[in-house]
């Protein structure tokens, strides 16, 4: 299985990288970890004329906390960088856990959080938990930079609002009141399997009253979606098993799954009910986990 020929660039600055993307237009692709781009090229699913590598932009691998801004995750941080990050482990273990259960160790050592977002695969594991925690992405292009809430970043399977000359540089997690969050993935195997259903939940608890909640569903719609009716159902109420079941049923109703080799639409919808309930319970009882 051979890769077709392509031009290769490894720019040492962001402006240079964006300039190359502007110059080649749709004929260029960014390569970060390569765990998605290279299989696609080998399988002739895409044939870019040029690859623009981010390998020399080492500032994009950092994960750190910045006062009044929140946690900044460099887009080139690998899944294992996220899983092992002391900053994330302290604040949002839920993100570390989501990263740790992706693909397999070899892929987690190369694949990047930016790539997981940019590829916009509906079953991707990181977007649901990042959206639940209010993540914002920073996009840098030839005309300057802008930020977009991750929730508004996806426009369809494989499609996002990023422009041809833009590079996703940072994922920003602003400080927030959530007392608990988690991502629960249901795959057909524990390792190396895409999510059949993925549910992320974030909650603000005050005693047994749920003050605020976010529920994000993965793999059951063209893009990760918020189950907003289910969130409303939960807000301001005292949490009981009965209420969580109702919220699960509501979230299932908001999902728009398809049938494919990994599961039928009916099955997926029912799994949304089950995993919404379980994820909420876990986030309520165990905090960020």
């Amino acid at each position: 299985m051979y890769l077709p020929d392509f031009e290769y660039y490894a720019p040492s600055s962001l402006p240079e990288a964006c300039g190359l993307l502007a110059q080649f237009g749709a004929r260029a692709k960014v390569i970060a970890g390569g765990t998605d781009a290279l299989p696609k090229m080998k399988q002739e699913l895409m044939a870019p004329e040029a690859l623009v590598s981010l390998k020399n932009l080492s500032q994009l691998t950092n994960i750190f906390y910045e006062q009044e801004k929140g946690i900044i995750i460099g887009s080139r941080a690998t899944h294992n960088d996220l899983a092992n990050s002391p900053v994330l482990q302290e604040k949002y273990l839920s993100i570390c856990e989501a990263a740790h259960h992706m693909a397999n160790n070899q892929v987690r050592n190369r694949g990047t959080v930016g790539g997981n977002i940019i590829n916009a695969v509906p079953s991707a594991d990181l977007p649901p938990i990042l959206i639940a925690l209010g993540a914002i992405v920073k996009l840098v292009g030839t005309g300057g930079e802008r930020t977009v809430p991750l929730e508004e970043f996806f426009s369809g399977p494989g499609k996002t609002v990023i422009k041809q000359d833009e590079i996703l540089t940072e994922i920003i997690l602003p400080d927030q009141p959530f007392t608990g969050s988690t991502y629960m993935k249901f795959g057909l195997r524990r390792s190396g399997a895409l999510a059949v259903v993925g549910v992320a939940a974030a909650v603000v608890m005050d005693g047994d009253i749920c003050k605020d909640a976010r529920i994000v569903l993965g793999a059951v719609a063209p893009v990760p979606i918020r189950a907003k009716k289910a969130e409303e159902l939960l807000k301001g109420k005292s949490v009981t098993d009965g209420l969580l079941e109702e919220v699960g049923v509501c979230a299932a109703g908001e999902s728009k799954p398809i049938s494919d080799i990994r599961g039928s639409a009916e099955y997926r919808r029912d799994m949304v009910r089950v995993f919404t309930k379980r994820a909420l319970k876990k986030a309520i009882q165990e905090g960020h986990c």
């Binding site: 290769y8 390569g34 765990t35 290279l38 080998k42 590598s53 693909a103 070899q106 050592n109 190369r110």
Partner: peptide, 27 residues
């Protein structure tokens, strides 16, 4: 498989296991 599923091509890159079929030599 040459697609990052089977791990036959695993080598250590700076001490971390990676699928060498999914790493460009130039990288």
């Amino acid at each position: 498989c040459e697609l990052g599923d089977c791990g036959s091509c695993t080598v250590l890159l700076d001490d971390k296991p990676v699928d060498s079929c999914l790493v460009l030599a130039v990288e």
